[in-house]
């Protein structure tokens, strides 16, 4: 059997998985794996891991038409100082908390009350993020009802949510309505609205009902790459999600809140 051909070590197993062995050594390792099922299992696991990593990062990062801009120092210089300056200034947790609470208390939340995050509220943010990830990547069927049937969309989703739904107009921020769909939110019928700007960047707004909620709160969830601003207004919860800078997302949430309140 294979034992006579020499010992195969862990480095050989890695090199086998990574395709870094010559033909002879490959044959040695394959013979070894036939005789050592535990090693064969490890190697199979690593291969799957490799594939998942490559799938996750390989396919999508081709050239962009804007890549030329990366090489122009002027563009870089004009864009970046703000971010650079901002880093030390806003990077501490304290500053962030002040920033969010100041924003919430000063501009949005009557009374500035800050109840601790309730499980159902955090769940809304996580559901909103998942819905964003799933639906914004749809190319052909991102929504069930398109923006061309706005009145029908508002009436239909409003009926399922049991409240008069106003579809926010975000054109002042460069986002047009794509449409919406019915989604489960906290185990009940909810709405997901999708918007898109001229560059094709999408954001979603999730609306759900929870009759046990009475307090109002406003939060920013930045646990993942996708940011979510969410707030509870009586029995209705709202969550705006996008993969855009926090301040842009904040502007969107602010606008939505203003319009929802006025409606």
């Amino acid at each position: 059997m294979s034992e006579a051909r020499g010992i195969v070590g862990e480095s050989d197993l890695h090199a086998y998985v990574d395709g870094q062995l010559d033909t002879d050594r490959r044959a040695d390792v394959e013979a070894w794996l036939d005789a050592h099922p535990q090693d064969a299992e490890r190697v199979a696991g690593w291969s799957v891991q490799n594939e998942r990593l490559r799938d996750a990062f390989s396919a999508d990062f081709a050239s962009l038409p804007t890549d030329h801009g990366l090489l122009q120092p002027k563009r870089a210089a004009s864009l970046r100082p703000l971010a650079r300056l901002a880093r030390p200034a806003i990077a501490t947790a304290a500053a962030l908390v002040l920033f969010v609470s100041g924003f919430a208390a000063g501009r949005l939340v009557p009374g500035g009350a800050h109840p601790p995050a309730m499980p159902a509220v955090t769940e809304l943010a996580s559901e909103a993020r998942t819905a964003f990830l799933i639906y914004t990547s749809e190319v052909r069927h991102p929504v069930e009802v398109g923006a061309d049937q706005q009145q029908h969309l508002a009436a239909w989703l409003g009926k399922r949510l049991d409240y008069r739904l106003h579809l926010p107009d975000l054109s002042s921020l460069g986002y047009g309505l794509v449409g919406g769909r019915l989604v489960p939110v906290g185990g009940k019928p909810g709405a997901l609205l999708m918007y898109q700007n001229q560059e094709g960047r999408r954001l979603t707004m999730m609306i759900g009902r929870n009759d046990e909620h009475r307090e109002t709160s406003f939060r920013l969830d930045t646990t993942g790459p996708v940011r979510t601003f969410y707030w509870i207004d009586g029995p209705i919860g709202y969550a705006v999600s996008a993969e855009i800078p926090a301040e842009q997302l904040r502007a969107v949430a602010d606008e939505c809140y203003r319009q929802m309140e006025a409606a």
Binding site: D55, A56, A59, D60, F61, A62, L64, T66, L79, R80, L82, A83, A86, R87, I90, A91, T92, A93, L96, L133, I134, T136, S137, E199, G200, R201, T222, R227, E243, P245, A246, E247, Q248
Partner: peptide, 19 residues
């Protein structure tokens, strides 16, 4: 808490993979 530091307008490639 550095999540806001990337608050810049950067073009992110369209993705076809499973997000």
């Amino acid at each position: 808490t550095t999540v806001i530091e990337d608050a810049q307008d950067v073009a992110v490639p369209d993705q076809t993979g499973d997000p």
